[in-house]
């Protein structure tokens, strides 16, 4: 996993609430057996019209907006557990998603793929979306070590599980940690009162 410490970049505004993982990556693209290529189909049915042409109204098709930070409406990533959604966002080049609320499974999947979910207050999100919409050159700083988001809207701290923070900063993942606990796990299995 790639390390993440701090970045200052432009952002893409997507002010839609309850963006579910079916929108991030529709089910018909889940037939692959590797993690490659999902970025091409991120938000597929919003990016393209029925006839396959680009939907000019969708923000990812507007050249004015770019950057590795996606700023999206409340309850981002609800629905299916498909990690393909995180692979699609990462594949497209997003490193951070800012929202006022994240669905649980998506949040975990994002962190396991080097995408940082940054939860801000509803008011902050509203102002940030407005500011970026009006000025696509707006820079946003995400500092993971300090757990702070900074922009012309103001500064706000965000929460992250301390263990996950260490993982993100160092590029570690859970498998390494769990494998290091093999003996403890085996002891647990032997000593269980009710075995399965």
């Amino acid at each position: 996993m790639e390390k993440f410490t701090k970045l200052t970049e432009t952002a893409v505004p997507l002010p839609v609430e309850n963006i579910d993982t079916d929108q991030i990556i529709p089910a018909r693209f889940l037939k692959a057996t590797d993690k490659k290529g999902f970025g091409d189909n991120v938000f597929r049915d919003w990016r393209f019209n029925k006839d396959g042409s680009k939907n000019a109204d969708f923000v990812l098709n507007n050249d004015a907006y770019s950057g590795p930070i996606l700023v999206a409406g409340d309850n981002f990533g609800c629905g299916s557990s498909r990690e393909h959604a995180a692979w699609a966002l990462a594949g497209y080049g997003f490193k951070v998603v800012v929202s006022s609320f994240f669905a649980d499974i998506f949040k975990g999947n994002a962190l396991n793929n080097g995408i940082l979910p940054v939860m801000v207050t509803s008011d902050y999100l509203k102002s940030l979306l407005k500011t970026i919409k009006e000025n696509p050159k707006t820079k946003v700083t995400i500092d993971l070590e300090e757990q702070v988001i900074d922009s012309e809207v103001g500064q706000q701290s965000f929460d992250i599980d301390p263990y996950k923070k260490v993982c993100m900063i160092n590029g570690y993942d859970d498998i390494d940690y769990l494998l290091s606990k093999k003996e403890t796990i085996e002891t647990f299995e032997k000593e269980r009162k009710i075995a399965v």
Partner: peptide
Amino acid sequence: FGIGTSQVAQVFASQCLLLTKP
């Protein structure tokens, strides 16, 4: 509960998951 594919790999590897109690 449902898990992502990284967690599927974790369970394959260790029969365990790292979780914060909801």
